[in-house]
Amino acid sequence: MKSTVRLDYQFTVTDCIKATVSDMLTPLEDPTILCDGLTVDFTSQSNSADVFWDFGVPGVNTDTSSLLKPTFTFPGPGAYKVTLYAGTKSPCGDTTEFIFNVSNPVLPEFFWTGQTCFEAQAVDFRPITGFPAGTTYLWEFDSTAAFPTFTQPNPPIQSWSVPGKHYISLSVKVGFCTYTKRDSIEISYLSANVDAGPNQTVSLGEWARLRATGGSDYYWYADDEVEMSSRITANTLARMEEVDTVKFYVRARDEFGCEGLDSTLVFVLNGDAPGPINFFSPNGDGVNDEFDLKSINPDNAYSLVIFNRWGSEVWSVKEYQNDWSGVDYGYNELPDGTYYYILHDQGEVIYKSAITLMRDTDGRP
């Protein structure tokens, strides 16, 4: 016996007057969207603002976005199937997919070797990162460089016409992508560690003994007319024939060809005048009550810093008036004992020594 079963179906037919089309920008249209490595800027080209992205990371359900132009960073290199749904709230929605092959970003690096002092500069730049065949290079230096630009992997030995900080960039183009690394280099002037020796005090008519270290090819000169036994040796003598403070300079070259400059002061005292004192007694008796440094600070132009025997600063002043009376910052009398002082001109040490403070005395050590 043959039986008949009747099944009824209901269909909803929607009249899509305007069809929704899902479309995205892909590397086929713009290869540069993969130039940032694992981070990709996506663009919906759909004709609907109602979109939903699935970036295709396996085992992850948070790799989504509803933005028209989302940015997404993939967890690692690989091929990811990216799906774009357009018109998600419409029965006339559409879907498109594309495989994005992402890779780690290219980070160009470079290093340099050689001398960076201005007098003997010769700097050799080399890229560190290896790049595939067909990569193009662009080195860019500033306009004061011997070679402002260069388009090969290894530029010639570089130098600059002025000292100071100079900027360097290396741009490499791999396929459709350009990557740039920027850095700076300091070309120093007179940076060799030349030492003109300590400041000294001599009597009028004596010879000052000048001793320089730290280089070769020395040349001495002064800020005043002074007779010198030699200007081109490390050690020389200078005859001091006027009561004055004379600044001597020495310029020299080190083993690498870098030059340096240093200076030292010679205080010239009248034969009858005392040098810097090493004792004073601020007890109000009118004798030796103030720390008098007129012999080396005649114009009251230098700054003075006082330290106690443990190295703690107890007093300081700019443009010292040769009138310290043995007090601290609160004008409290400091105890008797030995103190240490530095006389300086904007950080440059003019003179440093010890001074004994003793109040219970007749003003004489």
Results as ranks from 00 to 15, higher is better:
residue 123 V to N: 09
residue 83 T to V: 13
residue 120 A to M: 06
residue 310 W to L: 06
residue 205 G to K: 07
residue 57 V to A: 00
residue 170 L to P: 05
residue 111 F to I: 15
residue 192 A to G: 04
residue 180 T to P: 01
residue 259 E to Y: 13
residue 217 D to Y: 10
residue 200 Q to E: 13
residue 67 L to V: 06
residue 190 L to C: 03
residue 58 P to S: 00
residue 178 T to I: 14
residue 45 Q to D: 09
residue 294 K to P: 00
residue 18 K to C: 11
residue 156 P to G: 01
residue 124 D to S: 13
residue 118 F to T: 10
residue 302 Y to F: 11
residue 219 Y to S: 11
residue 339 Y to K: 02
residue 290 E to G: 04
residue 100 F to V: 00
residue 316 S to F: 06
residue 286 G to L: 01
residue 140 E to R: 13
residue 83 T to F: 04
residue 91 P to K: 11
residue 188 S to C: 13
residue 53 W to N: 02
residue 225 E to N: 10
residue 336 D to M: 05
residue 122 A to F: 07
residue 282 P to D: 03
residue 256 F to Y: 10
residue 319 E to V: 03
residue 65 S to N: 02
residue 91 P to N: 08
residue 96 T to V: 15
residue 356 T to N: 07
residue 209 R to E: 15
residue 3 S to C: 10
residue 38 L to R: 01
residue 227 E to S: 09
residue 327 V to D: 09
residue 187 I to Y: 14
residue 203 S to I: 04
residue 67 L to Q: 15
residue 206 E to Q: 15
residue 5 V to G: 14
residue 263 S to M: 12
residue 350 I to L: 01
residue 184 S to R: 07
residue 277 I to V: 10
residue 162 V to T: 14
residue 223 D to K: 02
residue 201 T to A: 12
residue 197 G to L: 06
residue 150 F to E: 03
residue 96 T to M: 01
residue 78 G to Q: 03
residue 185 I to K: 14
residue 164 G to C: 12
residue 277 I to C: 02
residue 246 V to L: 02
residue 164 G to P: 12
residue 107 L to D: 12
residue 299 D to K: 10
residue 231 R to C: 03
residue 327 V to I: 15
residue 53 W to I: 01
residue 304 L to W: 06
residue 143 S to K: 12
residue 215 G to D: 05
residue 22 S to N: 05
residue 146 A to F: 05
residue 19 A to I: 06
residue 194 V to G: 00
residue 215 G to H: 07
residue 276 P to W: 05
residue 93 G to M: 11
residue 44 S to K: 06
residue 173 K to E: 13
residue 109 E to I: 11
residue 168 I to C: 04
residue 356 T to L: 10
residue 244 D to W: 05
residue 153 P to H: 07
residue 81 K to S: 01
residue 72 F to E: 02
residue 334 L to A: 11
residue 150 F to R: 05
residue 355 I to N: 11
residue 29 E to W: 07
residue 126 R to P: 03
residue 142 D to W: 03
residue 232 I to L: 09
residue 178 T to F: 11
residue 365 P to C: 00
residue 137 Y to F: 13
residue 199 N to G: 07
residue 26 T to P: 14
residue 39 T to Q: 05
residue 23 D to H: 06
residue 227 E to N: 11
residue 129 T to K: 13
residue 277 I to S: 06
residue 166 H to C: 06
residue 113 T to Y: 03
residue 36 D to V: 10
residue 118 F to P: 10
residue 190 L to H: 09
residue 57 V to I: 08
residue 64 T to F: 01
residue 87 G to Q: 12
residue 61 N to K: 01
residue 212 A to I: 03
residue 218 Y to H: 06
residue 243 V to W: 07
residue 145 A to M: 08
residue 27 P to C: 04
residue 132 P to W: 04
residue 322 N to S: 05
residue 238 A to R: 00
residue 320 Y to G: 02
residue 106 V to G: 13
residue 220 W to S: 00
residue 303 S to M: 11
residue 213 T to P: 01
residue 149 T to I: 08
residue 137 Y to W: 13
residue 226 V to N: 09
residue 327 V to G: 14
residue 290 E to A: 14
residue 64 T to W: 00
residue 295 S to Q: 08
residue 249 Y to W: 15
residue 247 K to W: 03
residue 101 N to S: 06
